[in-house]
């Protein structure tokens, strides 16, 4: 078996004004080849205006096992939403 090819994550911006979105991953020896492979693999039908490739090893991810601890507190803070506050109808749209 041969040496492992590095893994890259591919992000594509579909139109001007939208953010780059993760579309998948691929193997390539370096950034130049990764960019060319991403173009062939993920934009065969005009899906993109711009591509980012990022070495997968450079990504730090949250641990799914700590999901509750990470995200639960936001659910209890309903005062962060505009509907928490009462404004009389007479005031009109705010």
């Amino acid at each position: 078996m041969q040496a492992a090819m590095p893994l890259w994550e591919v992000f594509i911006r579909s139109r001007n004004g939208l953010a780059h979105k993760h579309v998948g991953s691929l193997h390539a020896a370096d950034a130049t080849l990764a960019l060319q492979a991403a173009r062939d693999l993920y934009t065969r039908r005009g899906e993109g205006q711009s591509i980012w490739v990022v070495p997968s090893a450079a990504i730090t991810a949250s641990d799914p096992a700590e999901k509750d601890m990470m995200f639960e507190p936001t659910a209890s803070k309903i005062y962060r939403h505009p509907t928490f506050y009462e404004v009389p109808d007479d005031v009109g749209h705010m």
């Binding site: 893994l7 994550e9 991953s25 997968s56 090893a57 990504i59 730090t60 991810a61 641990d63 799914p64």
Partner: peptide
Amino acid sequence: MYTQALNQAGN
């Protein structure tokens, strides 16, 4: 897709 190695440290 995601890499399998992402959370190795946690494990």
